[in-house]
Design a protein around this nucleic acid. Structure first.
Length: 220
DNA sequence: GCTGCGATTGACT
DNA sequence: GTCAATCGCAGCT
């Protein structure tokens, strides 16, 4: 049983404790459960340049400033949803990004939602893939993960800790550049095949499209 | 009002 | 390894 107080701490403290926890989503087409294998911590205003809440509260990040234990869902790259669990000490804004997991229940449903996945381990391998496998989008932003009646719920690890539990590893976060980049706030299970490949942040200022490329196309 | 870019992914070479 | 897809928001004018 996960209680609110477990999440009312700094996201960097909460994040490793969430590894192995189970996220379940119950949607119209069925229930899918995922065991978390990779997470990243994002702290609040001023403290963490990589966080959505770094600058100030906006309509888009309001959930991050709200009660801990709620789901923060954001839209990125014009097509992907990403899931976070709101966690912070009193009066701050913080969240743990759910980067990857292993589907432990409802695999056929997850597969139907992720037709591009060719292997089981790819069903929830990556933040947007995890959201897709669970069937979660922006309409579920702000739901209480600790409410029994919620469509998305957070449950403690189902297996008792044993010597065989995978070691937790840490490293710099994915896609975060600038002053906050070296902060080792990415946590994952060592050797887990569902952990997403780490991609270093792309340096800014180097145009990806050469000037010769004209975005206009002839009609056709 | 306009512009650039992002806590990404999948297809293609 | 490289690159296109696609849109809401922040920052600037």
């Amino acid at each position: 049983m996960i209680v609110r107080a477990d999440l009312a701490r700094h996201p960097a403290d909460v994040a490793p404790a969430l590894l192995g926890a189970v996220l379940t989503s119950t949607r119209e087409d069925g229930q899918v459960a995922v065991r978390l294998t990779e997470v990243e911590a994002y702290a609040g205003v001023g403290e963490d340049p990589g966080s959505h809440a770094h600058r100030r509260r906006t309509p888009g990040n309001t959930t991050m400033f709200g009660e801990v234990g709620h789901l923060y869902v954001y839209f990125t790259y014009g097509m992907h949803w990403c899931l976070n669990i709101v966690t912070h000490a009193d009066g701050l804004a913080g969240a743990v990004l759910l980067r990857a997991g292993a589907v432990i229940r409802g695999e056929p449903i997850a597969r139907s939602r992720r037709p591009a996945a060719t292997r089981d381990r790819d069903l929830a391998r990556g933040p947007a893939r995890l959201a897709a496998a669970l069937g979660v989008d922006g309409s579920l932003d702000g739901v209480d993960l600790l409410d029994l009646a919620s469509p998305v719920r957070l449950l403690p690890p189902q297996d008792a800790p044993t010597d065989a539990s995978p070691a937790i590893r840490t490293g710099p976060r994915t896609g975060v550049a600038g002053p906050g980049a070296p902060t080792p706030w990415r946590f994952w299970f060592d050797g887990e095949p569902t952990v997403s490949p780490h991609r270093p942040a792309q340096p800014r200022g180097t145009p990806r499209h050469p000037a010769a490329a004209d975005p206009r196309r002839p009609t056709g």
